[in-house]
Simulated assay, not measured.
Amino acid sequence: MHQPVRFSVLAALAAADEAEFSFVRDTVEVSDSVLSKQVTVLEEAGYVRVRKGAVGRRPRTWLALTADGRAAFAQHLAVLREIAGEQVAGQQVAADG
């Protein structure tokens, strides 16, 4: 999750129950192959579920966060917010000092 593309994929998926592969690809601004590799890593970690199907005759792939993926992403965001809060507080102390 710490890798920027993986973090971006999780962030894109956190806002929806499920998203089409092409939507995530365009949102994260990576190629199909880069997204595919990162989704495989996230799927193996148990963070992302991949569902394949078709719309008409066109194959489609949908991605969704698992419960573990949502929990891990929320925890990661909480830690980042805590770190950012400490940084802001430290800057205010330095400015006031």
Results as ranks from 00 to 15, higher is better:
P4K: 00
R58V: 11
A16H: 09
V55D: 14
D17K: 12
D17F: 09
V39K: 00
R6L: 13
T66V: 12
L42N: 01
A71E: 04
L42R: 02
R70G: 11
Q3H: 13
K52Q: 12
A67G: 10
A67I: 07
K37R: 11
A19Y: 00
L42Y: 02
V9N: 03
A45N: 06
A45T: 03
R81F: 05
Q38L: 02
L80A: 05
A11F: 08
A84P: 10
G97M: 14
V50F: 00
M1N: 08
D17M: 12
R25V: 04
G53Q: 04
Q75H: 09
G97V: 08
S8M: 02
V28Q: 03
V30C: 14
A16N: 08
L35W: 01
V88D: 02
A19C: 12
R51I: 06
M1G: 11
V48N: 01
F73R: 03
Q91C: 04
A67L: 14
G97N: 04
T61Q: 03
L35G: 01
E82L: 07
A89D: 10
H2W: 04
A16C: 12
D96Q: 15
V28E: 01
A95D: 04
V93W: 14
A84Q: 15
E20D: 13
A64D: 01
A14R: 06
A67C: 06
H76I: 01
R60G: 04
R60I: 14
A89L: 07
E86D: 09
Q38F: 07
A16W: 08
